[in-house]
């Protein structure tokens, strides 16, 4: 258990990359990017975790009770917003691409070769 979460983080990164590289559809690709990003959530979460720690909310819990790290959680909140916004922007681009090129398959787009 002491290493398993880290391994999951690495797996998510690699599987996300795999999805991106093999994708035949930009919408699919953007979703894979979101999966890749979730690797960073798992990484940060497991770094800040403490066995037996409470959540860093001291409402009804005395200050000084062992708690997990609040900093990584704040970082993850930022990370989640980044995810949402990046996905939104890339989806907007994919939408427009489909409108003009009538395809979302990277294999069928040849305009930027060489």
């Amino acid at each position: 258990m002491s290493f398993f979460p880290y391994a999951v983080a690495a797996w998510l990164f690699v599987i996300g990359l795999y999805g991106i590289v093999t994708s035949r559809n930009f919408v699919h690709l953007v979703i894979c990017l979101a999966v890749l990003q979730s690797s960073t959530y798992v990484l940060l979460l497991s770094i800040g975790y403490r066995v037996g720690g409470t959540a860093p909310v001291f409402a009804g819990v005395r200050v000084g009770t062992p708690a997990v790290d609040p900093v990584v959680q704040a970082l993850m909140l930022t990370d989640i917003v980044v995810e949402a916004t990046v996905v939104a922007l890339l989806l907007a681009l994919a939408l427009q691409l489909h409108k003009r090129a009538n395809t979302l398959d990277p294999d069928k787009l040849k305009a930027l070769e060489g």
Partner: peptide, 28 residues
């Protein structure tokens, strides 16, 4: 208006976002 424009921006966006998560993993 141009499909190349969208494709170029997508390539830019996707590679840079992967780069950003590499950085974030390193920071982690």
């Amino acid at each position: 208006e141009e499909p190349e424009s969208m494709q170029g921006a997508l390539n830019f966006g996707i590679t840079n976002t992967v780069g950003a998560f590499l950085v974030l993993s390193g920071i982690g």
